[in-house]
Design a protein around this nucleic acid. Structure first.
Length: 570
RNA sequence: CGGGGCGUGGCGCAGUUUGGCUAGCGCGCCUGCCUUGGGAGCAGGAGGCCGGAGGUUCAAAUCCUCUCGCCCCGACCA
């Protein structure tokens, strides 16, 4: 490809809307443009990268026996109603109506549609295991699209669905995918960490997320430096805390005028946050409930929801809080509350606590939660945090942030049962299929690669995902000698199968160098007047900035070997 | 949805508080000259219903009302 023909509009200035590097560079390097919030058009360079990532995904999926197919994006509501997810997915689903007023959605994922597809055609254990996948656009009406393509409303995703006859077989499918994911991300040049994860709206029991560690990441994870355990904070369990016999104080009400938050209470009463108890009121399936968490802890709604087994859970509004506690927000407490009280293990063990008094501008101190409160139940309800004991080995956990690029789930029969996807086993007995699903956010992966591979000048593509591996930059394309050398080298590189871009623009060299660095081609061949007299060209490695003078006749072979050695083997 | 902010040529912004002449600046774009090893220089030029709709006024980018969009923080998620 010739740069003069390529539609790659680069920007000198950083678009105001882009906060993080990957977003800025994707816009500046001309990889994509925004259409509307969370929706992007991919320009030729971006599309090439996307295709490279997809190709890696394809190869690894195929290597594990996956078969690619293409599924509808526009999906009928009926299927989603059968699994209950028409409601469960809620506001996040793009819903549309056709001219007959029938309900459809733009598929946020494809479990329903693929299960419905295979249920009529898969009848026997002899057809199993079956691994089917698709790479296509998915739609989620995110509350807040963010970070460019990292959290878009339209995005490219690969999903593979596995169908097995028993748990052992499902476990094998799961392992194959897990291993394939490690290979895929390695080939993309990504450093990922697999973490134990909650399965959220997709469902199922076992799940791992593949995280790219980044400060800009939206997910918080904990990991153990001692044994290697790693999990999403939503998932990591916190231990039960033994209740110790503390010194018995008699509780007393204290006047705490307009002292609402934990910080205010602590400084006002000179106590530590560990001694304060947050009383949070929730509505679970319409019924009120109070939850106690220690002041230095964060409630984990996922854990709470699981413990309650409710389908709808939301914090009570200020009106409800006032009605139940008799006090404005900020003064709720567990004493004499007319609703069930659940306590996190750690909160339930506090024997000298400060709690809200259910009375405006009053708190109560020296409260023993185990003795003075009538708790309905105690459970693990808080988010794991730095320093908490590792659930496997007990060592102190570290925290980090990450962007999720892939997730694998064992779904079991969550979809096959309601959708009646069954097969006949060896004994002629009808059984539901055991399913797994395995997603990779392809467009998000592209952004994650940039996050991990960039510097002040721009992107530094790994060879495996670079839009072009090599760019040829003649310092002055008007100069006949340089032009002839550039053209010839361009042809030879193309002939040898290298993705090469010739910057034949009549721009000044600085402009071309800047663009080359910004777009991030792994190698740049500079053809300049001085070295050309000795039949040499400069070969610059984008990542290391190392420059070597190479005999023009040897460039192709040298590049071929360099490119090959940089592609991670599988 | 709650809180904050922003909509002015392709990009980045000024002008809005305190209404007033042909609405500016930098970058990019076009033409010519010149230049060619890190986003050159000179000259000329194109391009803007000031997000939209109402209103106030002799006069609105500027004031008022409504509306649409975008960005950031939070609650949700791959």
């Amino acid at each position: 490809m010739r740069m003069s023909q390529l539609y790659a509009p680069t920007l000198r200035e950083v678009p105001a809307e882009a906060e993080i590097k990957s977003h800025q560079y994707m816009l500046r390097a001309g990889l994509m443009r925004k259409s509307t919030a969370g929706i992007y058009a991919y320009l030729p360079l971006g599309q090439r990268v996307l295709q490279k990532v997809q190709q890696i995904v394809r190869e690894e999926m195929n290597a594990e026996g996956g078969q690619e197919l293409l599924l509808p994006i526009l999906q009928p509501a009926e299927l989603w109603k059968e699994t209950g997810r028409w409601e469960d997915y809620g506001e996040e689903m793009f819903k549309v109506k056709d001219r007959h007023k029938r309900d459809f959605c733009l598929g946020p994922t494809h479990e329903e549609i693929i299960t419905a597809l295979i249920r009529s055609d898969v009848r026997s254990y002899k057809q199993l295991p079956l691994l089917l996948y698709q790479i296509q656009n998915k739609y989620r009406d995110e509350i807040r699209p963010r970070f460019g393509v990292i959290r878009g409303r339209e995005f490219v995703m690969k999903d593979l669905y596995s169908f097995d006859q028993d748990e052992d077989s499902l476990e094998r499918s799961y392992q194959r995918m897990y291993n394939a994911y490690e290979r895929i991300f390695r080939r993309c040049g990504l450093d990922t960490v697999p973490v134990e994860a909650d399965s959220g709206a997709i469902g199922g029991d076992t799940s791992h997320e593949f995280m790219v560690l980044a400060d800009s990441g939206e997910a918080a994870i904990v990991h153990c430096p001692a044994c290697g355990y790693a999990a999403n904070v939503e998932k990591a369990p916190c231990p039960e805390v033994p209740i110790e016999e503390g010194e018995r104080h008699s509780s007393e009400e204290v006047h705490t005028p307009s002292v609402g938050t934990i910080e205010e209470v602590c400084s006002f009463l000179s106590v530590e946050p560990q001694q304060c108890i947050k009383t949070i009121l929730y509505m679970a399936d319409g019924k009120p409930l109070a939850v106690l968490v220690r002041g230095d802890h964060t409630l984990n709604e996922l854990k709470l929801q699981k413990e309650l087994q409710c389908s709808e859970l939301e914090m009570a509004d200020s009106h409800t809080i006032a009605e139940i506690t008799g006090a404005p927000v900020g003064f709720a407490g567990p004493l004499n509350l007319p609703i069930p009280i659940m306590a996190d293990y750690a909160a339930a063990a506090v024997t000298d606590a400060v709690v809200g008094a259910n009375k405006e501008d009053y708190h109560v101190r020296h409260v023993s939660i185990p003795k003075d409160c009538s708790l309905w139940k105690t459970a693990d309800l808080r988010e794991c945090q730095e320093g908490d004991p590792c659930p496997r080995c007990g060592a102190g956990l570290d925290t980090a942030r990450g962007t999720e690029v892939g997730q694998v789930f064992k779904l079991g029969t969550k979809y096959s049962t309601p959708l009646q996807a069954t097969f006949l086993d060896q004994n002629g007995k009808e059984r539901p299929l055991l399913m797994g699903c395995y997603g990779i956010g392809v467009s998000r992966t592209m952004a994650a690669i940039i996050e991990q591979h960039c510097d002040e000048d721009g992107i530094i593509w790994p060879v495996s995902t670079a839009p072009y591996s090599v760019t040829i930059v003649p310092v002055n394309y008007k100069d006949e000698k340089q032009r002839a050398a550039a053209d010839e080298l361009y042809t030879r590189l193309e002939d040898s199968g290298i993705d090469v871009l010739l910057d034949d623009r009549l721009e000044r060299p600085g402009v071309k160098f800047k663009d080359a660095d910004l777009i991030g081609f792994p190698y740049r061949v500079t053809i300049g007047p001085k070295s050309l007299q000795e039949n040499k060209v400069e070969l610059t490695h984008r990542a290391s900035k190392a420059v070597e003078l190479v005999d023009i006749g040897e460039v192709v072979d040298l590049l071929l070997s360099k490119l090959a050695s940089e592609q991670p083997l599988t």
